[in-house]
Structures are given as C-alpha cells and as structure tokens.
C-alpha cells in the first residue's frame, strides 16, 4: 500500500521452539485509528515489541514513514516518531510527574534536527501535556502518588510528549471503570484528531469498537482478520477464536 505510515511484512518471532508471531503482514495509513485484538497469548504485545525494537524479529521487516527501521534500537525508532505506552505503566519512579514528560521532550523532540526547545518552552510544553490529560495539579508529585487511571494517563502523556506520528497504546485501559475507559477513549480520539495515527491494543470490546476505524485480529501469532470493525466481529473465524477459548 503506497503512502502507508507503518508497514509490517512477513514478521516472525520465536521464543525457543514457541512461535509467537508467524508471518504477520499489516499496514497502517497515516491518520488511521486501528484496533488490534486477540485472545491472551496471541502475540499482540510481542508484535508491539517487535515494531518498537524492544524485541528483535527473526524474519520480516518493518517500514516506518517510508524507511525501513530494521536493526534500529528502540530510542532511534522513538526519535523517528514511533511512540508506545506500556501494558503495565512504567513511569520513572524517582522523577516527578512533570519531569516524566520532560524526558521524551529532551531526548526525542530536542534530539530531532531543527530548533531545540528552550527551558521555558519545555516547561510550557509539559504544562500543556499535563493539561491535556488532566494531571496539571499533580505536576510535582511522584508517580507513586497517582491513582490507577492517572498512571495510565501519565503513560499516554509521556508517549505523546515525544510528538509521535504513530502512537501504539498497549492495553491502556485494563482494570479501569467504565467511565474511566470512556475518558481514555475520548482522549485517544482527541489525539487522533490532532493528526496522530493510533494503534490501540485492547481487550475491552466496547472501547475497541468505539475507537477503531479498522480492526485487526491476531490468533496464535497469525493475523486472521483485517477490515471494518463491524464486518470483522461477525467473521465466523474470529467468533470461533473468541468463543473457542
């Protein structure tokens, strides 16, 4: 597909004898909102890790923004505009909430060619991001003082601070209440409206259906469906995969 922001071809990953991912092909266009679903252990997180460079895939290739990123380290991919949030929030525990956002600003935004942000601009950018996720009043707190949902928001804000072209949100809603889930979904949609392509990995179907323009289904390391959400969930193979477990 021409003009795709992310293009994964023939990607496979093994752990010993266990095949975690088996020849995955997928492509995401700029500006799209894609949902990625699949039962536990289907390889969703492994796929994210391979795309982001945390794990090294044995075969296949990842192209991002028109260039192959194979062999690049995670931080290099982040600098090119690929950001992710982690399934379990991994804040920098000894830094304040505001400083957690300062790190990607310093190391990603300021590391890109072009003008570096001045200290005042950095502060302003942090404040703006905190405003966006409604954490402004927790600015000077340490992450351990945050609630579960605030932690998830910090995780997303930190990914956003890197000014990504693509945001991969790995189960950012697990364990949240219904209203909190709605909160995060509308936040993600707002981000998308600012022009950021988003891949959402999620178990909560209500959130996925509300969010996604397209749905991709992984089962046992294989892609079994890829299309419009309504069509995909009526796919007999998808139904079997979900009901069969």
């Amino acid at each position: 597909m021409a003009g795709a922001l992310l293009e994964v071809t023939g990607l496979s990953k093994r752990f010993g004898g266990f095949v975690a991912l088996d020849g995955i092909d997928l492509s995401v266009a700029a500006g799209e909102r894609v949902g990625l679903i699949g039962p536990n252990g289907s390889g969703k997180s492994t796929l994210v890790n391979c795309i982001c460079g945390t794990l090294v895939n044995e075969t296949g290739s990842v192209r991002f923004d028109g260039e192959t990123v194979d062999g690049l380290l995670t931080h290099e991919r982040t600098r090119r505009g690929m950001a992710r949030s982690f399934q379990l929030p991994r804040p920098f525990t000894t830094l304040t909430v505001a400083d957690n956002l300062r790190v990607p600003l310093l190391y990603t935004v300021n590391a890109r060619p072009g003008r570096a942000l001045s200290p005042t601009e950095l502060d302003a950018r942090c404040a703006e991001l905190l405003q966006l996720v409604a954490l402004a009043d927790k600015r000077t707190h340490l992450p351990r003082d945050l609630t579960q949902v605030e932690m998830r928001k910090l995780e997303l804000a930190r990914a956003m601070a890197a000014e990504p072209k693509l945001l991969i949100a790995d189960e950012s809603m697990a364990g949240l209440s219904q209203s909190e889930v709605d909160d995060i979904v509308s936040l993600l949609i707002r981000l998308n409206e600012r022009g950021i392509t988003i891949i959402l990995i999620e178990h909560i179907m209500r959130a996925v259906m509300k969010f996604s323009q397209r749905l991709i289904v992984l089962v046992s390391g294989k892609k079994i469906a890829d299309g419009l959400p309504d069509a995909v969930i009526r796919d007999p193979e998808v139904e079997r995969a979900y009901l069969g477990q």
Partner: peptide
C-alpha cells in the same frame, strides 16, 4: 536507574 525499557521508549540512548 528507574526503568531502562521505558527510557529507550522515551528516546533515551541508554
């Protein structure tokens, strides 16, 4: 010191 994986994901060349 806090989390190298998250550091890399934030663009830090660890």
């Amino acid at each position: 010191r806090d989390d190298e994986l998250a550091a890399e994901a934030s663009g830090v060349p660890t």
